[in-house]
Amino acid sequence: MWKLIVRRTFLTIPQIIILSVLVFILAQAMPGDALTGLIDPSIDPATIEAMRERLGLNNPWYVQYIDWIKGVAQGDFGQSFRFKMPVSELIGGRIINTLWLSLATLVLTYLIAIPLGITSGRFNDTWLDRAITGYTYVGFAAPLFIFALVMLFIFGFQLSWFPTSGSVAPGTEPGTFAYFMSKLYHLLLPALSMALITTVSTVQYLRSEIIDTKQKDFIVTARAKGASESRVYNRHVLRNSLLPIAAFFGYEITGLIGGTIFIENIFGYPGMGELFLSSISLRDYSVMTALVLLFGLAAIIGALLSDIILSLVDPRIRIK
């Protein structure tokens, strides 16, 4: 078992290296360089050239790459050209919001998926199951951004049940209970919109897993022994179906990242996804590349965690 885990962990090293090269190439391909963010356009070209030399911008690419990696490893992502502050500080201000949004979405995803999946799997081919399957069909087809817009249109604008933008009501004092509640209130509609879509694949997985498991011999045996139906489900079916789902959260990260870009944009929620889009429209490329790197790392580590947990809870799934 530990061999599998060690091997899987080693696999992330080349992944991280390829990601860093990809991001480096991106950064190089962007118009302008680190200096564009630092200086005043009125300085004369000779001084700029001297600064370029001093900052190593005239070095061969591999030297620049190594320097860049060294900086990133110490949390130095360069300067933001628009906000005139280090990229790491800028991201630091946004990262909490996105973490909350992702966490709320994950929790809601599981809160929706587990009861629906279990009901649908246990009572398959009833009208209830058909309704749930219908929902998964629709949810599978509906693009997240359209669904989010409709949610915002109905619950934000038409019914005015939820705020239509921001992460907290202006004027609330940080640290107070009211502040916390306001944050939660702003979080709810975006998180729910995303969860209702992302949960669909988990519902489908859970349903087919339960239908599969309940036809297995050991379940038939448990029933034949006279175990009650709810005991059969709680002790045998669910244990076999729910554990893998719990491990999926790492894989969900990749999807969440794509989701937050849309959701934060639509709901005007100041997180990293929103920062990503605004950094592009402001041509603040050092921020953008730093975000690609961070999100990429998060996805790689998420997949690593899920693979490891999954191989621990479910020996059938082998990491190659």
């Binding site: 696999l11 080349p14 992944q15 390829i18 990601l19 990809l22 991106l26 391909a29 962007m30 990749t254 990242i257 794509g258 870009i261 990503f276 889009l277 592009i280 490329y285 953008m288 590349t289 975000l291 690609v292 999100f295 990429g296 996805a299 790689i300 998420g302 997949a303 190659k320």
Partner: peptide, 24 residues
């Protein structure tokens, strides 16, 4: 091939496509 594919399946593709669209 498969290590390569696995790697790209994990990455947030949407974001990278956006970044490349901007860079090209």
């Amino acid at each position: 091939f498969m290590r390569f594919v696995d790697f790209f399946m994990v990455l947030p593709i949407l974001m990278i496509v956006i970044a490349f669209v901007t860079a090209v």
